[in-house]
Computed example of a mutant assay.
Amino acid sequence: MPIYMDRHDVSEEVTAEAVAKLHQEDLKIQHKFNCRGLTYWFDDKRKTAFCLIEAPDEQSLINMHNSAHGVVPHRIIEVEPSIVESFLGRIEDPEKSKNVSLNIINEPAFRTIMMTGLEQLSYLDTEIQSLKESINKINQSISATIKSFKGRVVNQTSDYFLVSFESVSHAINCAVQVQTDFNQWKEQNKLDNIELKTGLSAGVPVTDKESVFEDTIQRAERLYYISRAKIVITNEVKELYQSENQNVSFQPDIISPISPNDEDLLHNLMDYMESIWTKHSFHSNDLSKELNLSKSNLYRKMTSITGESPNAFIKEFRLNKALSYIRSKKGNISEIAYETGFGSPSYFTKCFQQKYGVSPTDYLHLLDI
């Protein structure tokens, strides 16, 4: 049967004990609706509860809640138990509460999500095999650091780690340690063509999106995308960290918080880019109109947030997509050029060579080394 996670937004008067009692009422009658309550999370600070339930369908879950106590969920999504466990650390009641009759669980489902990974800036004059070995060593170091700060690796590729933390302090301190270690390694090995990128966001598993932590992951991904040798964090992560570490200040050369207004602009920018970037006729004037900014304001805002002019950002966006397409061998070079919004294969090759130091064809050959 499918597994669902639901969200309940409760009033300020609701306690962990009250939520535990409601959960027990569900368990008493769940068999009548062919449901099985696996566990739940309750956040007393944010007044949210999340239930993990096996059920034939969403309506059966709603009927069970309604019949048991009348408190129906505000949102329900279908989930994969393994993914829930990777983010939240469990899919059943914690050991400390299993042998208690009321089974009170006062444990938030709120998590800080970090995306961190390496970006190769060029492939010119590079010993590929040696570089691969170095990257593997760096990734092993990152993995060990994540573990030491109690992070849970949700997803890992050769390029990045997606990590879940219960503690925002652990997340920030982990990111700083990873960045510090990388900077030392880079200096020791005198390599300027690799950069570490890191973005951090925070949130709850069920929102108006369809997947677990979907919008939190998206925010972390977008901050990761614009990070340039710094750790970019949301304003919420900044405030949470400062509330836990009142006498500790951020290192401006390592951590770069993004303001709420700039974050909103970034998301509007990325939403639009993802909807239109394949059209070769699309250019910076379209961005001005979509974001309702004059050309000068758009330039100022984008260089401040992303470090690039509008035109450079559009080209960089397309080149990143093209690089991904070549890696996955999604068509030949000419096909990829057109699919990623370049007007011609020759122009695509010119832009690719300028950025990475090799032609798309040569890069394709490097992949097989």
Rank of each mutant, 00 (worst) to 15 (best):
Ser281Lys: 08
Gly307Thr: 03
Tyr123Asn: 15
Tyr325Thr: 04
Ser130Ile: 05
Glu127Lys: 12
Asn235Lys: 06
Ile62Ala: 12
Asp286Phe: 11
Pro94Val: 04
Lys190His: 14
Lys132Pro: 08
Tyr160Ile: 07
Gly117Gln: 04
Gln354Met: 01
His365Leu: 12
Glu236Tyr: 07
Gly203Trp: 02
Ala68Ile: 12
Val176Ile: 15
Ala18Gln: 09
Lys98Phe: 01
Lys350Glu: 10
Leu27Gly: 08
Pro257His: 00
Asp264Thr: 07
Ser324Gly: 08
Met114Ala: 13
Ser167Pro: 01
Leu38Tyr: 04
Arg327Asp: 07
Phe33Pro: 07
Glu92Gln: 10
Asn155Lys: 14
Ala322Lys: 01
Leu52Ala: 03
Ile217Cys: 02
Gly343Ala: 15
Trp41Pro: 05
Val153Leu: 04
His170Ile: 03
Leu61Pro: 10
Glu78Met: 05
Ala322Cys: 06
His267Val: 15
Asn173Gly: 05
Ile226Val: 02
Gln24Met: 13
Met5Cys: 00
Arg219Asn: 06
Lys321Gly: 00
Pro94His: 06
Glu316Arg: 00
Arg228Cys: 00
Lys295His: 11
His65Lys: 05
Val72Ile: 11
Glu12Ala: 11
Ala49Cys: 04
Pro257Met: 02
Ser134Ala: 10
Tyr241Thr: 06
Pro56Arg: 10
Pro205Glu: 03
Phe165Asn: 10
Ile105Tyr: 03
Glu244Tyr: 01
Ile231Lys: 04
Met64Lys: 11
Glu210Thr: 05
Ile113Glu: 06
Gln24Val: 04
Val248Met: 03
Ala202Tyr: 02
Lys289Arg: 08
Ser275Asp: 14
Leu366Asn: 06
Glu335Asn: 11
Thr234Asn: 14
Gln129Val: 12
Thr207Pro: 02
Pro108Gln: 01
Gln30Phe: 10
Glu54Cys: 06
Asn332Asp: 11
Met114Ser: 15
Ile83Val: 14
Ser201Gly: 03
Gln120Gly: 05
Tyr225Phe: 01
Leu240Ile: 04
His8Ile: 07
Asp159Glu: 13
Leu287Trp: 08
Val79Leu: 11
Gly203Ala: 00
Leu269Phe: 02
Trp277Ile: 00
Ile3Leu: 10
Lys147Asp: 09
Gln179Ser: 13
Phe352Asn: 00
Pro252Glu: 15
Ser275His: 14
Leu124Gln: 10
His280Cys: 11
Asp125Thr: 09
Ile104His: 04
Asp253Leu: 14
Glu274Gly: 13
Asn155Ile: 06
Ser60Leu: 05
